[in-house]
Write a protein that binds this DNA or RNA. Structure first.
Lengths: 99, 99
DNA sequence: ATCTTTGTTCGGTATATTACGAACAAGGAG
DNA sequence: CTCCTTGTTCGTAATATACCGAACAAAGAT
């Protein structure tokens, strides 16, 4: 019997998730999204003391890491957690920290 | 009744922990240490395909983030998890991901 | 006192991150 | 069509990260 996924691969995945979470702004976004279904970029922009373009960059990083996803709802964009990957991240953190 | 610690502060702490965990090598070190009490830098060096100096840098980052601590046991250095902070990190991740 | 082992620190380089404002798209409103 | 709103992308700059080999420091071994 072997692993369906190598430890190495899991490690790299978790590192990727952790890295994406390694900034206060991105963590804030994730917190908001984990507590409500979705939100608009503008909502976040109102609450955060950073330029729109900077926020956009952070959202892109979260998207690239697979933690969130955006859906166009013109003229806005609705952001939600990527639930599947969020659960995966949770499970990877758990198995690291609660062996 | 209020928070003994502001949400903001917790967020920043978690971001700091997450950032420290955001690299495969550092994650590997943490995994090893979470499964055995301690280890020596040399043990890690043998298993990792990176220069000693690079490993040393990663260990320093983990130390600066408060996740590990080193104890001199000449001529080696024994590294252990910083249990208190490890538990704190665990709890912060939990409260983010399992609200 | 010299050698050896173990790690850290230094110097250097390449790449990545964070941030901003200005310019640019996309699409609804008037 | 022209304006307005919403976000992204571009250009740029400062700082941080990741990595290596060489030099250095500490302390036990010979």
């Amino acid at each position: 019997m072997e692993h369906p996924e190598s430890e190495q691969l899991k490690q790299d995945k978790l590192a990727r998730y952790a890295k994406a979470m390694g900034h206060p702004v991105r963590l804030y976004v994730l917190k908001v999204l984990s507590r409500q279904s979705c939100c608009y970029s503008g909502d976040l922009s109102d609450e955060l003391p950073i330029a729109k373009s900077t926020l956009s960059q952070h959202l892109k990083e979260l998207k690239d890491a697979g933690l969130i996803q955006g859906e166009i709802e013109a003229p806005k964009i609705k952001y939600c957690l990527n639930r599947a990957n969020w659960e995966e991240a949770k499970s990877l953190f758990k198995s690291l920290m609660e062996p």
